[in-house]
Design a protein around this nucleic acid. Structure first.
Lengths: 148, 148
DNA sequence: TTTATATATTTGATACATCAATTATATCTA
DNA sequence: TAGATATAATTGATGTATCAAATATATAAA
């Protein structure tokens, strides 16, 4: 391992993490595009979470998807404009919005979910359970090290 | 391991990779901000590559940093506007631009590089050499699986 | 040497990220 | 209950990501 990590960026861990996640995203989006709809992986992930737990707040969505609440607001806005979900004031807490998947949204979810599962499988091919556990464990260490 | 990976997103590998890289970026940017300049990690990485190899083209930069050439153009534009680098037409190939770090750019590089190295060390604390090798190896498998 | 093809960079359009500030409502406390 | 504080969502400003199309120049091929 080189001492000066700037000599060979391609060999450093963070470059590799970036590369892996970027390639994964590209592959995932390309496969999703084959559906012929124009929707992003991120938008699908939001729909999935709302479908699983319709009372979820935008703050909770932001934590779950590691995004800023501002990003969530704008993504919700797009999903709403395109008719994938409905949005109205919550009765008991008027600061909140009730988000609901529309039929159109549910239809695209049904098509997209198998694709996303397949993407994950493809990306993890030939990586056995132990290796996956190790990866998770090392990632968790990085997460700990970088959290405050 | 759950069969339906949508039940517990927090436990899936790609969520963890996203979380790790996001937290790392946030920490790195926060530490960089302490310098009091207003510059992003990405911009520093571009400066580093140009400093190492001044004849580098924007296409090469895009490959090295896993970014679209369009992104590189805009980042270069910002770095130029802020006086961190100069940019002029290449004499022998007029499609290309000659990029050079300015004194101002060199100054910020000197301050930023130690910080970036420290960030990487912090993030990898208590992760031994073997574990790092394993991480790289697994990431490479993902990169292979998702390339094409 | 013209024509076709390839390469380097830029631009336009759209989506997302992050921070700070704002708006609106809810809750807590004196 | 009035005023302080907290929370949910939005908005503004700026930077980055991706794709497709446009420009400009270089190189290969007829």
């Amino acid at each position: 391992m080189k001492n000066n990590s700037f000599e060979n960026p391609k060999e450093t861990i963070f470059y590799q993490i970036e590369k892996a996640i970027k390639q994964y995203r590209t592959m995932a989006q390309n496969n999703l595009n084959k559906l012929g709809y124009s929707i992003t992986i991120n938008q699908i992930l939001i729909l999935i979470e709302i479908e699983k737990r319709p009372e979820i707040s935008q703050v909770e969505l932001s934590e779950l998807l590691f995004k800023d609440v501002a990003s969530i607001t704008r993504m919700i806005e797009l999903l709403f404009k395109r008719g994938f979900l409905s949005r109205k004031e919550n009765e008991t807490d008027r600061r909140k919005k009730d988000l609901r998947i529309t039929d159109k949204g549910r239809k695209i979810l049904e098509l997209a979910i198998p694709i996303i599962k397949e993407n994950r499988q493809t990306a993890l091919e030939k990586i056995n359970a132990e290796e996956q556990e190790n990866l998770l464990s090392t990632l968790n260490k990085i997460i700990l090290n970088t959290s405050k």
